[in-house]
Protein backbone atom coordinates (compact mmCIF):
# COMPACT_ATOMS: atom_id res chain seq x y z
CA UNK A 1 0.00 0.00 0.00
CA UNK A 2 1.33 3.40 -0.97
CA UNK A 3 0.66 5.95 1.72
CA UNK A 4 1.48 9.43 2.98
CA UNK A 5 1.25 11.07 6.38
CA UNK A 6 -0.06 14.58 6.93
CA UNK A 7 0.51 15.99 10.40
CA UNK A 8 1.84 19.37 11.51
CA UNK A 9 3.54 17.74 14.49
CA UNK A 10 6.95 16.30 13.61
CA UNK A 11 7.16 13.69 16.39
CA UNK A 12 3.82 12.26 15.28
CA UNK A 13 5.07 12.05 11.71
CA UNK A 14 8.21 10.25 12.86
CA UNK A 15 6.16 7.78 14.89
CA UNK A 16 3.89 6.96 11.94
CA UNK A 17 6.99 6.57 9.77
CA UNK A 18 8.54 4.19 12.30
CA UNK A 19 5.34 2.13 12.58
CA UNK A 20 4.98 1.98 8.78
CA UNK A 21 8.53 0.67 8.47
CA UNK A 22 7.47 -2.34 10.53
CA UNK A 23 4.75 -3.25 8.00
CA UNK A 24 6.33 -4.91 4.98
CA UNK A 25 3.53 -4.06 2.56
CA UNK A 26 3.34 -0.37 3.47
CA UNK A 27 5.39 2.12 1.52
CA UNK A 28 5.41 5.56 3.10
CA UNK A 29 6.00 7.80 0.09
CA UNK A 30 6.14 11.16 1.85
CA UNK A 31 5.48 12.95 5.13
CA UNK A 32 3.86 16.36 5.03
CA UNK A 33 3.44 19.03 7.67
CA UNK A 34 1.42 21.24 5.33
CA UNK A 35 -1.94 20.33 3.78
CA UNK A 36 -1.10 22.44 0.73
CA UNK A 37 2.06 20.41 0.04
CA UNK A 38 0.14 17.17 0.51
CA UNK A 39 -2.57 18.39 -1.82
CA UNK A 40 0.02 19.25 -4.50
CA UNK A 41 1.55 15.78 -4.13
CA UNK A 42 -1.84 14.09 -4.47
CA UNK A 43 -2.48 16.04 -7.65
CA UNK A 44 0.61 14.39 -9.11
CA UNK A 45 -0.03 10.82 -8.01
CA UNK A 46 -2.52 8.65 -6.22
CA UNK A 47 -2.00 6.82 -2.93
CA UNK A 48 -3.89 4.01 -1.24
CA UNK A 49 -3.86 5.38 2.29
CA UNK A 50 -3.39 8.65 4.20
CA UNK A 51 -2.55 8.97 7.88
CA UNK A 52 -4.20 12.28 8.61
CA UNK A 53 -4.12 14.60 11.59
CA UNK A 54 -7.27 16.60 12.28
CA UNK A 55 -5.98 19.58 14.22
CA UNK A 56 -3.65 21.59 12.04
CA UNK A 57 -3.24 25.36 12.01
CA UNK A 58 -5.42 27.01 9.41
CA UNK A 59 -6.69 23.82 7.79
CA UNK A 60 -8.33 20.90 9.54
CA UNK A 61 -7.94 17.29 8.42
CA UNK A 62 -11.65 17.21 7.60
CA UNK A 63 -11.32 20.27 5.37
CA UNK A 64 -8.39 18.56 3.69
CA UNK A 65 -10.54 15.51 2.86
CA UNK A 66 -13.16 17.81 1.36
CA UNK A 67 -10.59 19.22 -1.05
CA UNK A 68 -9.84 15.77 -2.46
CA UNK A 69 -11.83 14.80 -5.51
CA UNK A 70 -11.57 11.09 -4.75
CA UNK A 71 -10.09 10.48 -1.30
CA UNK A 72 -8.20 7.23 -0.76
CA UNK A 73 -8.55 5.27 2.48
CA UNK A 74 -7.87 7.51 5.46
CA UNK A 75 -6.77 6.73 9.00
CA UNK A 76 -7.24 9.70 11.31
CA UNK A 77 -4.52 10.32 13.90
CA UNK A 78 -5.54 12.81 16.56
CA UNK A 79 -5.39 13.67 20.21
CA UNK A 80 -8.84 15.31 19.96
CA UNK A 81 -11.16 12.48 20.88
CA UNK A 82 -14.12 14.90 20.85
CA UNK A 83 -13.83 15.04 17.08
CA UNK A 84 -14.02 11.28 16.66
CA UNK A 85 -17.79 11.37 16.02
CA UNK A 86 -17.24 13.49 12.92
CA UNK A 87 -15.35 10.69 11.18
CA UNK A 88 -18.67 8.97 10.46
CA UNK A 89 -19.46 11.78 8.02
CA UNK A 90 -16.66 10.58 5.73
CA UNK A 91 -16.87 7.33 3.81
CA UNK A 92 -13.14 7.30 3.19
CA UNK A 93 -12.17 7.32 6.89
CA UNK A 94 -11.69 3.75 8.04
CA UNK A 95 -10.24 4.25 11.53
CA UNK A 96 -9.40 6.76 14.23
CA UNK A 97 -6.09 6.45 16.11
CA UNK A 98 -5.80 8.47 19.27
CA UNK A 99 -2.40 10.00 19.96
CA UNK A 100 -0.04 8.92 21.28
CA UNK A 101 -0.60 6.06 18.86
CA UNK A 102 -0.44 2.60 20.40
CA UNK A 103 1.43 0.16 18.11
CA UNK A 104 -1.22 -2.58 18.39
CA UNK A 105 -3.98 -0.14 17.44
CA UNK A 106 -1.89 1.02 14.49
CA UNK A 107 -1.52 -2.61 13.36
CA UNK A 108 -5.28 -3.14 13.61
CA UNK A 109 -6.04 -0.01 11.59
CA UNK A 110 -3.56 -1.00 8.90
CA UNK A 111 -4.99 -4.49 8.81
CA UNK A 112 -8.44 -2.98 8.24
CA UNK A 113 -7.05 -0.97 5.31
CA UNK A 114 -5.41 -4.11 3.95
CA UNK A 115 -8.70 -6.03 4.07
CA UNK A 116 -10.56 -3.27 2.26
CA UNK A 117 -7.85 -3.20 -0.42
CA UNK A 118 -8.00 -7.00 -0.77
CA UNK A 119 -11.78 -6.92 -1.32
CA UNK A 120 -11.24 -4.31 -4.03
CA UNK A 121 -8.58 -6.48 -5.65
CA UNK A 122 -10.57 -9.75 -5.60
CA UNK A 123 -10.67 -11.15 -9.13
CA UNK A 124 -14.02 -11.37 -10.79
CA UNK A 125 -15.78 -14.74 -11.11
CA UNK A 126 -14.05 -16.45 -14.03
CA UNK A 127 -17.00 -18.75 -14.91
CA UNK A 128 -18.80 -18.16 -18.21
CA UNK A 129 -20.58 -14.88 -17.91
CA UNK A 130 -24.32 -15.01 -17.57
CA UNK A 131 -26.26 -13.01 -20.09
CA UNK A 132 -26.67 -9.48 -18.87
CA UNK A 133 -30.30 -8.92 -18.08
CA UNK A 134 -29.78 -5.45 -16.60
CA UNK A 135 -32.23 -2.95 -18.06
CA UNK A 136 -30.88 -0.40 -20.51
CA UNK A 137 -32.57 2.39 -18.63
CA UNK A 138 -33.37 3.30 -15.04
CA UNK A 139 -35.52 5.76 -13.14
CA UNK A 140 -34.25 8.20 -10.56
CA UNK A 141 -36.30 10.13 -8.08
CA UNK A 142 -35.69 13.89 -8.23
CA UNK A 143 -37.99 16.21 -6.30
CA UNK A 144 -40.75 13.57 -6.16
CA UNK A 145 -40.52 13.14 -9.94
CA UNK A 146 -39.31 9.92 -11.56
CA UNK A 147 -36.88 10.71 -14.33
CA UNK A 148 -35.95 8.10 -16.92
CA UNK A 149 -32.26 7.83 -17.76
CA UNK A 150 -30.87 5.85 -20.68
CA UNK A 151 -27.86 3.96 -19.35
CA UNK A 152 -25.88 4.40 -22.58
CA UNK A 153 -26.08 8.19 -22.19
CA UNK A 154 -24.53 8.17 -18.72
CA UNK A 155 -20.80 8.99 -18.86
CA UNK A 156 -19.88 8.41 -15.25
CA UNK A 157 -21.22 8.39 -11.72
CA UNK A 158 -19.37 9.76 -8.74
CA UNK A 159 -20.05 9.01 -5.06
CA UNK A 160 -20.00 12.19 -2.98
CA UNK A 161 -20.67 11.46 0.67
CA UNK A 162 -24.31 10.46 1.03
CA UNK A 163 -25.30 11.10 -2.59
CA UNK A 164 -24.14 10.31 -6.09
CA UNK A 165 -23.61 12.64 -9.00
CA UNK A 166 -24.68 11.27 -12.41
CA UNK A 167 -23.12 12.95 -15.45
CA UNK A 168 -23.59 12.35 -19.15
CA UNK A 169 -25.12 13.52 -22.40
CA UNK A 170 -27.67 16.07 -21.20
CA UNK A 171 -27.51 14.46 -17.76
CA UNK A 172 -26.46 16.19 -14.55
CA UNK A 173 -28.28 14.83 -11.51
CA UNK A 174 -27.61 14.37 -7.82
CA UNK A 175 -29.37 11.41 -6.22
CA UNK A 176 -29.43 10.34 -2.59
CA UNK A 177 -28.21 6.74 -2.91
CA UNK A 178 -24.98 4.76 -2.93
CA UNK A 179 -22.68 3.86 -5.78
CA UNK A 180 -23.18 0.14 -5.20
CA UNK A 181 -26.95 0.56 -5.29
CA UNK A 182 -26.98 2.22 -8.70
CA UNK A 183 -24.28 -0.15 -10.01
CA UNK A 184 -26.72 -3.05 -9.51
CA UNK A 185 -29.23 -1.32 -11.79
CA UNK A 186 -26.80 -0.72 -14.66
CA UNK A 187 -25.72 -3.03 -17.50
CA UNK A 188 -22.67 -4.88 -16.20
CA UNK A 189 -21.06 -5.16 -19.61
CA UNK A 190 -21.09 -1.40 -20.06
CA UNK A 191 -20.39 0.02 -16.61
CA UNK A 192 -17.28 -0.57 -14.56
CA UNK A 193 -16.17 0.66 -11.14
CA UNK A 194 -12.71 2.16 -11.65
CA UNK A 195 -12.39 3.62 -8.17
CA UNK A 196 -14.17 3.50 -4.81
CA UNK A 197 -15.95 6.69 -5.81
CA UNK A 198 -16.40 6.30 -9.58
CA UNK A 199 -18.42 4.17 -12.00
CA UNK A 200 -17.74 4.75 -15.67
CA UNK A 201 -19.43 3.92 -18.96
CA UNK A 202 -16.75 1.92 -20.82
CA UNK A 203 -18.18 3.01 -24.17
CA UNK A 204 -17.54 6.65 -23.38
CA UNK A 205 -13.82 6.47 -22.59
CA UNK A 206 -11.89 8.95 -24.70
CA UNK A 207 -8.44 8.00 -23.50
CA UNK A 208 -6.53 6.44 -20.62
CA UNK A 209 -3.31 7.90 -19.35
CA UNK A 210 -1.37 6.56 -16.37
CA UNK A 211 -3.93 6.36 -13.59
CA UNK A 212 -6.63 8.51 -15.12
CA UNK A 213 -9.39 8.17 -17.68
CA UNK A 214 -10.75 10.99 -19.80
CA UNK A 215 -14.52 10.79 -20.22
CA UNK A 216 -16.44 13.66 -21.73
CA UNK A 217 -14.37 16.55 -20.35
CA UNK A 218 -13.71 14.97 -16.96
CA UNK A 219 -10.62 13.23 -15.68
CA UNK A 220 -11.53 10.17 -13.61
CA UNK A 221 -8.98 8.45 -11.35
CA UNK A 222 -8.30 4.72 -11.66
CA UNK A 223 -7.44 3.03 -8.39
CA UNK A 224 -4.34 0.84 -8.51
CA UNK A 225 -6.43 -2.14 -7.47
CA UNK A 226 -8.85 -1.69 -10.40
CA UNK A 227 -6.40 -0.95 -13.19
CA UNK A 228 -5.67 -4.55 -14.22
CA UNK A 229 -9.37 -5.51 -14.25
CA UNK A 230 -10.14 -2.44 -16.35
CA UNK A 231 -7.46 -3.37 -18.88
CA UNK A 232 -8.98 -6.86 -19.18
CA UNK A 233 -12.35 -5.28 -19.98
CA UNK A 234 -10.97 -3.20 -22.83
CA UNK A 235 -10.59 -4.25 -26.43
CA UNK A 236 -6.82 -3.83 -26.45
CA UNK A 237 -4.73 -4.42 -29.55
Amino acid sequence: MDCIVLDDESVSREIVRFLCEKESDIKLLESFSSPIEAFKFLNQRSVDLIFLDIHMPGFSGFEFIQTLKSPPLIIITSSDIEQAAEVFDYESIIDFLRKPIQPEKFKKAVSKARKIMEVDRKPKDKRAPESDTSPQHLYINIDKKLIKLEARKISYIEAKGDYISIKGEGIDHKVHTTLSNIFQKLPKDVFFQVHRSFLINLNQIIDIQDNTILIDKSVIPISRAKRQALMEKLNLI
Binding site: S10, V11, E14, I15, F18, L19, P100, P103
Partner: peptide, 21 residues
Protein backbone atom coordinates in the same frame (compact mmCIF):
# COMPACT_ATOMS: atom_id res chain seq x y z
CA UNK B 1 10.41 2.45 25.10
CA UNK B 2 7.31 0.39 24.30
CA UNK B 3 7.02 1.90 20.84
CA UNK B 4 10.66 1.56 19.89
CA UNK B 5 10.76 -2.08 20.99
CA UNK B 6 14.43 -1.87 21.89
CA UNK B 7 15.44 0.39 19.02
CA UNK B 8 17.61 2.98 20.78
CA UNK B 9 18.19 4.95 17.59
CA UNK B 10 14.49 5.65 17.17
CA UNK B 11 14.13 6.74 20.80
CA UNK B 12 17.16 9.02 20.46
CA UNK B 13 15.73 10.53 17.27
CA UNK B 14 12.42 11.34 18.95
CA UNK B 15 14.12 12.86 22.02
CA UNK B 16 16.32 14.93 19.72
CA UNK B 17 13.27 16.26 17.84
CA UNK B 18 11.48 17.16 21.08
CA UNK B 19 14.59 18.81 22.51
CA UNK B 20 15.00 20.78 19.32
CA UNK B 21 11.37 21.88 18.99
Amino acid sequence: DQLSGGNPEFKKRIIKIILNE
